[in-house]
């Protein structure tokens, strides 16, 4: 094991991977989207002119192929572009007086360059009604949607550009979990063989994992503030990880407090196994059965369900590998320094 940790090839592998994920992860544009809409009320029975601002789109270039429509359940209302300037547009929608299936209208735009993009639940009917009577033409037949001509990351509401944090914040936790699994393995090996380097390995893997856990929490807090609105929303996953990290902190304190060398090692190893089980329960099991803001928990749509699409995957998987390799690199340096330290102390005795 020590031989692999001292080998250099996997450490150098992390360098191109990190360059790749930082460059690709930051420079690749996110999909076209509607960033703001200047009103949220529409009047039924009138022609409504809606002014929108879009992001990463080519509205003006693709003006000739632009289509817009409002969608309410199965009903489509076709719009007419009255003005297009750069990435903003004004669209007129004749909205017939009739009963609509749903309360909210989705706004959908399509053109040849950007493909189809939408703003869900964009508009809501006002209290008053207009007097114009339109024939209720369902223009669904004319609707033609197409894919974007560009390769992009998904543009999700609220997340927007911060979806790129998937390659940074989420990977901190993956690096932490892999280090903790390594630590668990070392503890089991120590219990089997009783060789001291295994104990040192388990201990320092936990120390490194705590550093990455702290980074995961800090980066998560910043991300949460600007997407969920608070640095520490009352979320089972956040509280769970805090408890789990305190359990590991207890491991570090426990290991430091025992005096007798072999007793200390065995006690720490057994507690490490216990702490790992606790960690898994608090991070994966409990949030799964309660409602959490995090994706993939408690019925919340997971990234993996529809949004961890191929464009995110080709950066996300290398990112997990890259950050994990970097974490193990840092850990191996820490370990080797500590092993030299222990050698020195042994020589003193």
């Amino acid at each position: 094991m020590l031989k692999i940790l001292k080998a250099t090839w996997w450490k150098f592998l992390s360098i191109p991977l990190l360059i790749y994920i930082v460059a690709f992860g930051l420079l690749q544009p996110i999909a076209p989207g509607i960033s703001s809409i200047h009103q949220d009320k529409i009047t039924i029975g009138e022609v409504n002119f809606i002014s929108i601002e879009t992001y990463n789109t080519h509205l003006e270039e693709a003006a000739s192929s632009s289509q817009a429509w409002l969608k309410n359940g199965e009903t489509f209302i076709c719009g007419v572009f009255t003005e297009i300037k750069n990435n903003t547009a004004i669209i007129g929608f004749p909205i017939a007086r009739k009963d609509y299936e749903k309360r909210f209208f989705d706004l959908i735009i399509n053109n040849d360059i950007d493909g189809t993009f939408e703003l869900r639940d964009a508009l809501v009917p006002a209290e008053n009604f207009g007097n114009n009577s339109f024939s209720d033409v369902d223009c669904k037949v004319e609707v033609n949607t197409n894919e974007s001509a560009f390769f992009t990351f998904p543009n999700r509401e609220i997340l927007k550009e911060s979806i790129r944090n998937l390659f940074f914040h989420v990977c901190m936790w993956f690096a932490m979990v892999f280090l903790l699994i390594f630590s668990l393995g070392s503890s089991v090996a120590y219990l089997n063989t009783g060789k001291k380097p295994w104990d040192t390995m388990a201990h320092l893997a936990v120390v490194t994992a705590m550093v990455f856990g702290a980074l995961g929490i800090l980066t998560g807090m910043v991300w949460a503030k600007f997407t969920w609105g608070a640095f520490w929303p009352n979320d089972p996953k956040l509280n769970g990880v805090l408890v789990a990290m305190l359990a590991y902190l207890a491991y570090l304190i426990l290991r430091g407090s025992a005096k007798d060398e072999s007793k200390k090692g065995r006690l720490a190893a057994v507690y490490n196994i216990f702490a790992f089980v606790l960690y898994i329960i608090f991070i994966y099991v409990i949030p799964k059965f309660s409602s959490s803001l995090h994706p993939g928990m408690g019925g919340n749509p997971a990234f993996s369900e529809y949004d961890l699409d191929s464009s995110l995957r080709i950066v996300f998987y290398p990112a997990v590998i890259a950050w994990t390799l970097l974490a193990f690199w840092l850990f191996s340096i820490l370990l080797r320094i500590e092993l030299i330290n222990e050698d020195l102390e042994d020589q003193l005795i």
Partner: peptide, 14 residues
């Protein structure tokens, strides 16, 4: 910037 700075700050923290 459509929340791009959040990514920037996250990278700084790391």
């Amino acid at each position: 910037g459509e929340k791009f700075y959040v990514v920037f700050v996250v990278i700084l923290i790391i």
